[in-house]
Write a protein that binds this DNA or RNA. Structure first.
Lengths: 144, 144
DNA sequence: ATCATTCTTGATTAACTTACTCATATTAGA
DNA sequence: TCTAATATGAGTAAGTTAATCAAGAATGAT
């Protein structure tokens, strides 16, 4: 049930970008020093987020990274799915990346007790993270 | 956010023991074949659960494993903590195994946005798993 | 007592994942 | 064209997961 460093760093990097959103861009070394993230690892993370359409970048002098969407439209759930994969504790209860469990002894999957509990765990996690935006994150509390 | 095979196997093994609880004991090979679990790996899991005081065992002919407590008193949260460690997504929000995050740039930990969200995720997970007993698990739904 | 059966313990391992690092592009601005 | 920045891909050390193996110790049956 762990959040990887990759996701943690990713969230912290996006936090910095949220704080300056609309005002300026940030370069990787600025993000790295502000959040104590190893710079080369941070780079990979930023590029993954870029490929996923969450931020854009410019090279050369005056280059840097910016959020491409408004921080109110990006949820932590989206970010963690990009960097860590599905939120679900096991593949067979994932809604965004379902995978059937090969060795499950329950022919009728709906009867599997593991699937039953883990389904509710997944829903509880997703309910929080898919409604928690970068704005909520930056202000320290969820809106609504 | 993954549940390990170890915990999954552990839960499925305890399910079998719950089904025969009060009636008979089960040997490791019975559990292994009923739930398609590699037998030597299962053994490690059963012994960990034994050391944790959840089940007892007898050697020799007519040996086997039994639940030492009533299935209504054992929660999935307990089992997963034994086999996988804390439920919390990051150490700094664990209530049963707190660990401060060394590189966190927030001097005042209560101000850390990551800690804030992950705290509620932890609570949501624990709220489900710490109230879900082996009885609920075996019958496929939570009591209350 | 002895033997087969079953749990017990500890060591070992192959494959995978995590968290990086490094080298080498490529692009943009001065 | 020189320099500051991002881009890309390969490589790696350490740790975790999911087992496997071998040898020991307790129990019951004969």
């Amino acid at each position: 049930m762990k959040l990887s460093k990759k996701s943690e760093y990713g969230l912290r990097a996006l936090l910095e970008l949220t704080l300056v959103h609309g005002k300026s861009t940030l370069q990787r070394h600025q993000i790295a020093t502000r959040q104590h993230i190893p710079i080369e690892f941070l780079e990979q993370i930023l590029l993954a987020l870029k490929r996923a359409g969450i931020l854009s970048s410019r090279r050369g002098m005056k280059g840097g990274y910016t959020l491409i969407k408004s921080p109110g439209e990006i949820t932590l759930g989206q970010v963690i799915r990009i960097l860590d994969g599905p939120l679900a504790p096991i593949g067979c209860v994932s809604k965004t990346a379902y995978q059937k469990c090969g060795d499950c002894p329950y022919a009728d999957h709906a009867q599997c007790p593991v699937q039953h509990v883990m389904g509710s765990v997944r829903d509880a996690i997703a309910d929080i993270l898919d409604h928690y935006t970068l704005n909520d994150f930056a202000s320290g509390h969820r809106k609504e």
